[in-house]
Computed example of a mutant assay.
Amino acid sequence: MDVELRASDDDRNRVVSELHQHTTAGRLTLDEFSDRVGAVWAARTLGDLAALTRDLPTLPDPAAEATAGSGTAGHGHRELLVLFAVAALTLLLLGSFLAATR
Rank of each mutant, 00 (worst) to 15 (best):
D2M: 06
V3I: 10
L5H: 13
L5V: 10
L5P: 01
R6F: 11
S8Q: 05
D9A: 06
D10N: 12
R12K: 15
R14Q: 14
R14Y: 07
R14G: 00
V15A: 03
V16K: 12
V16F: 06
V16W: 02
S17P: 00
S17T: 12
L19F: 11
L19E: 07
L19A: 05
L19M: 06
H20F: 09
Q21A: 15
Q21T: 14
T23W: 14
T24I: 09
G26M: 09
R27Q: 09
L28C: 08
L28D: 08
T29Q: 00
T29P: 01
T29E: 02
T29Y: 01
L30I: 11
L30W: 15
D31Y: 02
E32I: 00
E32K: 01
S34W: 01
D35V: 11
R36H: 08
R36E: 10
V37H: 07
G38R: 12
A39T: 01
A39K: 11
V40W: 04
V40Y: 03
V40C: 02
V40F: 02
W41Q: 07
W41N: 00
W41K: 00
A42F: 02
A43E: 10
T45F: 05
T45E: 07
L46V: 01
G47S: 04
G47W: 04
D48Q: 07
D48G: 02
L49P: 06
L49M: 04
A50W: 03
A51S: 15
A51Q: 13
L52A: 04
R54I: 04
R54A: 15
D55A: 10
D55W: 00
D55E: 13
D55T: 10
L56H: 05
L56P: 02
L56I: 04
L56E: 07
T58V: 15
L59E: 11
D61M: 00
P62L: 08
A63K: 11
A64H: 02
E65W: 02
A66R: 13
T67L: 12
A68K: 08
S70L: 15
T72M: 07
T72C: 05
T72Q: 08
A73Q: 09
A73E: 12
A73W: 10
G74I: 03
G74T: 07
H75F: 12
G76D: 15
G76C: 12
H77C: 01
R78Q: 10
R78Y: 11
E79W: 11
V82E: 13
L83G: 13
F84A: 15
F84T: 14
F84L: 15
F84S: 14
A85F: 07
A87H: 13
A88T: 13
L89Q: 06
L89T: 05
T90G: 14
L93T: 04
L94Y: 08
S96Y: 09
F97W: 12
F97T: 13
L98K: 13
L98E: 12
L98C: 04
A99N: 02
A99H: 11
T101K: 09
T101M: 08
R102K: 12
